[in-house]
Each structure stands twice: as C-alpha cells, then as structure tokens.
C-alpha cells in the first residue's frame, strides 16, 4: 500500500481550520470576561447610587449649590462630589405628580407636590420620590 505524506496545502488548510476554532474560542472567552467586568462595575455603580441617594435624603452630603428662579426661590438643589471612586451629581427638585385618589374623593387635589431626588453616576441614574416635608 503506497504511503503518502500530507501535502503542504492539506497542512495549511488544517492549520487554518484549527486557528479559526481557536480564535472563536478566544472571542467567547473575551466576551465572558467583558460581561463579568461590566456586571462587577455595574454593581459598584448601583451601590454608589443607592449610597448617594440615602445620604442626600438625610442631608449628609457635602454642602450643595442652589439654583433659583427669577423670584429668588430655590428650584433645584445640586450636590456634586465623589463616592466610592465615582463622580456623582445628585439633584433635588420639586415636582407635581398625580395625587392618589380613592373612590368618592372627587374634591381632593388633582396633584400633590413631592421632592424628587435623582443621582447620576457614570451615565446611570436612580431616583426616589419623597414627601416634601420629609427631613432626616
């Protein structure tokens, strides 16, 4: 039986196929790592957002700056700083939201004024709604 070695073309084709599989596997591995990094970073950002909102709610952030309207009333309170290595901006403003109304309460106000606290870190935003009178 005649013995024949691989030709150069066969070897090259085999190597190309192997290399393609190898690259595909590496891509999958890289995607997994990237996803892990994103999840870890996202959980850190989420925690930082929660911390900033909780601290703002209790007035435990560094002194804010105020934005006023033409009448001199404060319309927006803005805290800026860094927490857990992230730069944050937290804004508090008043908003009128539809009032919850029970059946038979036709005379109740249509809207109720609330405080809205919104914190933004690394493009992610979280907000909470608070009664206007709530203080720490």
């Amino acid at each position: 039986m005649p013995r024949r070695a691989f030709t150069l073309l066969e070897v090259i084709i085999a190597m190309v196929i192997l290399a393609t599989f190898g690259v595909a596997l590496l891509q999958v591995r890289l995607e997994g790592l990237r996803a892990g990094r994103l999840i870890a970073e996202s959980s850190r950002v989420e925690r930082a957002l929660g911390d900033v909102l909780a601290l703002a709610q209790r007035e435990m952030l560094p002194p804010p700056r105020f934005e006023r309207n033409d009448a001199g009333e404060i319309v927006r309170v803005i805290w800026e700083g860094a927490h857990l290595g992230f730069d944050y901006i937290c804004v508090q403003e008043h908003a009128d939201v539809p009032a919850p109304r029970l059946p038979g309460e036709a005379e109740a106000a249509a809207t109720v004024r609330v405080r809205r606290l919104a914190a933004t870190i690394a493009g992610e935003t979280a907000e909470i709604i608070l009664p206007p009178t709530e203080r720490r």
Partner: peptide
C-alpha cells in the same frame, strides 16, 4: 491574566 481578572470579578460579585 484572564484567570486573575475572573477571580477579581468573582470577588467583586461576592462582595456585592
């Protein structure tokens, strides 16, 4: 390096 990075992610998620 990947194993180290993976371990760091695992530790971060465990911490969370």
């Amino acid at each position: 390096d990947w194993s180290r990075e993976n371990a760091a992610h695992h530790a971060a998620l465990r911490l969370d």
